[in-house]
């Protein structure tokens, strides 16, 4: 079977997650960790061959491994506070991946928004809510088998698609030209503010290019996003309980 190899990381990963999902009685974390590591290793062997650049490879494996492991820990940890912290770690690792994709601005923004704002706020709420100690609903996973199986089937399907058509086996031989693949046509303008694309390839990912794109081609969408943000803020204020309705 041609694509049989992808079954190993998927099945191992499913076993690891299913094993570690919260239960009344905890399970051996070591076994779970072993399975998770095995799954990661299999994933690396099957899908993540090194590109040859040692620094880049090691950074990539570091960030991606951290992101996946801490994501898995986040969904399996019985303590919501730790889970939120694992999420923060996962976010940091993802920001590292952003950096590798030459998106320094995004990386910084994500850290600020997620780690700095969202996670902290959620942690705050969790701690407020659990003044009486750990709650038993965090010790029970809902429909664990079904959910994990279906999710991993989905993952398997995605991986299969990548393996079949993604060019991992060297099908995308024209990778050299990849940079010019969707070079913008100077005549196609999204709107009257559109600027001609940058001719300097090295500028890709720089804030200059990003800013130009955001505030020319995507100006309307930026405005729209801003409006949505404003409305969401108003909504959040309106929905959130008043002090007069009682304490949290």
């Amino acid at each position: 079977m041609k694509n049989g190899a992808l079954l190993i990381p998927v099945v191992l990963g499913w076993l690891a997650v299913w094993w570690m999902l919260p239960r009344e009685k905890g399970r051996s974390r070591i076994l779970g960790a072993l399975m998770a590591l095995g799954a990661l290793l299999a994933l690396q062997v099957t899908f993540l061959p090194p590109v040859g650049n040692v620094v880049r490879d090691s950074l990539f494996y570091l960030f991606s491994g951290t992101a996946i492991l801490s994501g898995g820990l986040m969904i399996t940890d019985r303590n919501p506070v730790f889970a939120a912290l694992w999420f923060a770690l996962s976010t940091l690792a993802v920001c590292g991946l952003f950096l590798l994709n030459s998106a320094p601005f995004l990386s910084a923004a994500t850290i600020i928004v997620y780690a700095g704002a969202i996670v902290v706020t959620f942690l705050f709420v969790i701690m407020l809510a659990q003044q009486s100690g750990a709650s038993n609903y965090d010790h029970h996973a809902v429909q664990p088998v079904m959910a994990s199986v279906m999710s991993f089937v989905l993952l398997g399907a995605l991986l299969f698609a990548l393996q079949e058509w993604g060019g991992i086996d060297g099908k995308a031989a024209d990778e050299v030209k990849a940079g010019q693949f969707v070079a913008q046509d100077a005549k196609v303008r999204a709107n009257i503010f559109s600027q001609p694309p940058s001719s300097n390839k090295n500028e890709i990912g720089s804030m200059r290019v990003l800013g130009r794109s955001l505030f020319s081609d995507y100006l309307y969408f930026v405005e729209l996003a801003g409006t949505v943000l404003l409305i969401a803020t108003i909504g959040a204020i309106a929905i959130a309980p008043r002090r007069s309705q009682g304490t949290l």
Binding site: Q143, M146, A147, M150, S151, V153, L154, A157, L158, F160, A161, E164, W165
Partner: peptide
């Protein structure tokens, strides 16, 4: 959400079977 996921998986798998 579970039911939605099942639906999604069914659609995706079917589409992939056809494509492959």
């Amino acid at each position: 959400a579970m039911v939605m996921l099942i639906g999604l998986v069914v659609c995706l798998v079917t589409a992939l079977r056809v494509l492959a």
